[in-house]
């Protein structure tokens, strides 16, 4: 059984490692999605090192929590979280998007241990998560379903079909986390197609909604725990994140949604992240 990490300092250091992995992976792959992946390092750290009940040594453990990634394009951060928690060797991270790699450009179920679902086309993951939660509830299983969704994919009508069904079946065992980073390929979500007021939308669809700072690992964990205490209603945690967080030149820039770093970009990003790591290690707590 996987041991949870409770020290926030340790968790922040893991998130730093994941960020560095993502920068290197995307540089090696020469394509992929930088900003969203880096911006999700804290949430994936919280999930894989604290929130989820899972066992990297036994990926098919029947009682594991299910983690469904809907916005598959952020998979570099997902792969790094899986490798760092022990699902497969870290060296393999550098094969991302290459011929013969198990690390497909968007996750493929069965390709790598720890991947619950193949994803890519936006708006599909929440439906799959709802299906799993319906079975878990009907069979009174203890495991929960967590689903990562993006803010841009709220523009897909299917998201709302799934939201309605989750409320109908009173899926208290379903926690969705929305990466509210405000960017999508063509610009800012509120310019491309406004999704606000997104919290009110989910509330009116019968969901419990929690807003959280998506870079505060403790608050992310608290929000997940709170969602477990809400019965008969699914929870949407709206995690407000900064795309490219902790890499200064990527932060808040939608141009970085779908492009990889150059060698110069990588060196600069890694040096910033190393500095941050040194400072964090020196901190008392």
């Amino acid at each position: 059984m996987w041991k949870k990490v409770h020290s926030i300092k340790k968790l922040n250091l893991i998130a730093n490692v994941i960020r560095q992995d993502v920068v290197k992976m995307l540089y090696e792959a020469k394509s992929g999605h930088s900003a969203g992946s880096i911006g999700l390092a804290d949430i994936f750290t919280a999930l894989y090192f604290n929130v989820l009940y899972h066992d990297p040594a036994n990926p098919d453990w029947p009682d594991r929590d299910r983690f469904v990634l809907s916005n598959g394009h952020v998979c570099p951060v997902f792969y790094s979280a899986l490798a760092n928690s022990g699902y497969f060797p870290k060296e393999e991270l550098m094969t991302l998007r290459k011929l013969g790699s198990r690390l497909q450009g968007h996750p493929h179920r069965g390709a790598l241990p720890g991947i619950e679902n193949s994803s890519g086309p936006l708006g599909q993951g929440l439906s799959q998560a709802v299906g799993m939660a319906i079975v878990a509830k009907s069979e009174r299983k203890k495991w929960r379903v967590y689903c990562m969704v993006s803010d841009g994919e709220q523009q897909e009508g299917q998201s709302w079909e799934a939201a309605m069904l989750a409320a109908k079946y009173r899926l208290g065992n379903l926690t969705a986390i929305m990466d509210r980073n405000n960017i999508q390929i063509d610009g800012y979500t509120e310019e491309v197609l406004p999704i606000e007021p997104i919290a009110e939308k989910y509330r009116s669809f019968g969901w419990n909604v929690i807003n959280v700072d998506g870079h505060n690992i403790k608050k992310i964990i608290d929000a997940c725990n709170e969602s477990k205490a809400v019965y008969e209603r699914p929870t949407m945690i709206i995690a407000h994140t900064i795309p490219g967080k902790a890499v200064s030149f990527m932060e808040q820039r939608f141009e970085w949604h779908g492009k990889p770093p150059s060698q110069e970009d990588m060196n600069r990003a890694l040096s910033e992240l190393e500095n941050m790591r040194t400072i964090m290690e020196e901190e008392e707590i």
Partner: peptide, 26 residues
């Protein structure tokens, strides 16, 4: 009735929910 899911007029969601249910070995 416990193994029947009425999804409403929502065929896209139906395919996804079915995938999730089948994922659990059904």
């Amino acid at each position: 009735p416990g193994r029947f899911i009425q999804v409403g007029v929502a065929e896209q969601n139906m395919a996804g929910v079915a995938s999730g249910i089948a994922h659990c070995g059904k």
